[in-house]
């Protein structure tokens, strides 16, 4: 027991040390700080998808909808309402999270493929709204004319726009807060009911757990996390376009979660690192980068169905 706990703490310490030191070691491997920020933001998205997929057993194939609404929410706020990076994040999180909560109420009775289909449909509705409503969203050209703002802390001001390292640490703090909250929820009595539903919905129901209500809450929480990631994404790029709402991006998040290991908490982070770094590297070599990632996914799903982290766990347990 104690050995298990110690090794878990060591792994946690290693993960955070690697993330904190990333701006210093990444250049050694040809990386750059903005890539690190991108990894963190997409990893948070993948972990939000996995919060639902890996721990409640519910596959949403339209989570880009809440990610994209988060991005547009942050963009609208920074462009028209308030020149503040944290307020932009708040606005995006609320827009995507509330929309997800309201629409989530309509899908809690659906299961499996039907749940996934309805989530895709919701996502595409928002995609076409963003695409068509040019006067507000900028249409296909995307929402431009906003940028992340310096962070005023009272005693000092941090320039997030021009200092890539400063923005990386801003993203890292946001990531840590969101991921910490996720871990906290999963260890709570409520989190245990999510896992109960994943493991056996009928048994959960016959223990007196109102399954639909709990799936709805888990879905809503996941939407808020997702929208938060989307808002960070808008501030990362100083830009939002309809592709952040498209189901192709939803698919990317699912791929990151499955590749990394969807029954594990940190798996999607690993999946996001592999996905984003490969995408960055391969897309500079060939326009057909997606086919290489596709082959990798097929290999992982065929040979390591529990994902990369699942494989590492198995090895270390054996």
């Amino acid at each position: 027991m104690i050995k298990g706990r110690t090794s878990r703490l060591l792994v946690l310490a290693a993960i955070w040390a690697a993330l904190i030191a990333a701006p210093y070691w990444m250049p050694l491997f040809g990386g750059y700080t903005a890539l690190g920020s991108r990894v963190l933001v997409l990893a948070l998205g993948a972990m939000s998808v996995n919060f639902l997929l890996g721990f409640t057993g519910t596959l949403s194939f339209g989570h880009a909808a809440w990610f994209g609404l988060g991005a547009y929410g942050a963009g609208f706020c920074l462009k028209w309402f308030a020149l503040s990076s944290p307020l932009g994040l708040l606005a995006g999180t609320l827009l995507g999270g509330i929309a997800g909560t309201l629409l989530g109420a309509l899908l809690v009775r659906r299961r499996g493929v039907y749940f996934a289909m309805v989530t895709i449909a919701f996502g595409q509705v928002f995609y076409y709204i963003a695409f068509q409503w040019s006067s507000v969203t900028g249409g296909d050209d995307g929402l431009r004319g906003f940028s992340r703002q310096p962070l005023h802390l009272g005693f000092t001001t941090i320039d997030l726009l021009n200092n890539a390292d400063a923005f990386y640490y801003f993203v890292l703090v946001c990531f840590a807060a969101a991921v910490g909250l996720m871990g906290f929820i999963l260890r709570s009595p409520f989190g245990r009911t999510m896992i109960a539903i994943r493991e056996n919905e009928r048994r959960a129901r016959f223990l007196g757990i109102p399954v639909e209500l709990h799936i709805w809450i888990a879905f809503s929480l996941s939407c808020f996390f997702m929208a938060f990631a989307g808002a960070l994404y808008a501030e990362l790029n100083n830009f939002a376009d309809p592709r952040v709402l498209h189901y192709a991006l939803s698919g990317d998040f699912v791929i990151m979660a499955v590749m990394g290991g969807m029954r594990t908490f940190w798996g999607p982070l690993l999946g996001a690192i592999v996905f984003v770094v490969l995408q960055d590297y391969l897309s500079s070599v060939t326009v057909n980068w997606m086919s290489f990632i596709g082959i990798l996914i097929v290999l992982i799903v065929l040979f390591f169905p529990r994902g990369i982290l699942g494989l590492i766990r198995q090895r270390s347990a054996a």
């Binding site: 223990l207 007196g208 757990i209």
Partner: peptide, 11 residues
Amino acid sequence: ESAAGFRLRPW
């Protein structure tokens, strides 16, 4: 935990 009415509790 479900029987004790703790199923929605955060802690």
